[in-house]
Amino acid sequence: MTKPIELYLTSDPSLLRMMRTVLSQICESIGFSCNETNKIVLAVDEACTNIIRHAYKNKYDQPIIITCNFFPDKLEIVIVDYGEPADAKKIKPRKLDEFRPGGLGVYLMTSVMDEVKFYNGTEEGNRLIMIKNLPKEEKIRESGNHY
């Protein structure tokens, strides 16, 4: 199985674009379609945006660690931050009949990923684990992945 890949970035919004580019390449290289790759990238971008805005209160020099763990049938993405923990029980996708800006990030994350779990305020910081299953006909491609 391909070894995990870790991306370290600071909570600087200007780095999100670079993160998306790298993550896109990782997702496509292991067999996700362009459409599925876009969804995974969106979910991770939304997670980082929430971390920057809510956990780090727009402080732009704090750590965010994104780890991609590869399994034969799925991609697991773990995102860790050390900001103010939100009550995981209160993190819920908002109702879409409320027409207002804001609050769509969690909804999008849970819509496009197969599993989304929050473990906030742990000794290892706030951990968000998101899983995307590979299409049945695909398996993680092991050859040629050297990051």
């Binding site: 998306r20 969106l42 971008d45 939304e46 945006t49 027409f99 207002r100 800006p101 804001g102 769509l104 990030g105 999008l108």
Partner: peptide
């Protein structure tokens, strides 16, 4: 080429 919920929220505000 890409828009996340921050961009969508901006457009919602504009529409409102």
């Amino acid at each position: 080429k890409y828009m996340d919920s921050s961009g969508v929220a901006t457009l919602i505000e504009g529409l409102q």
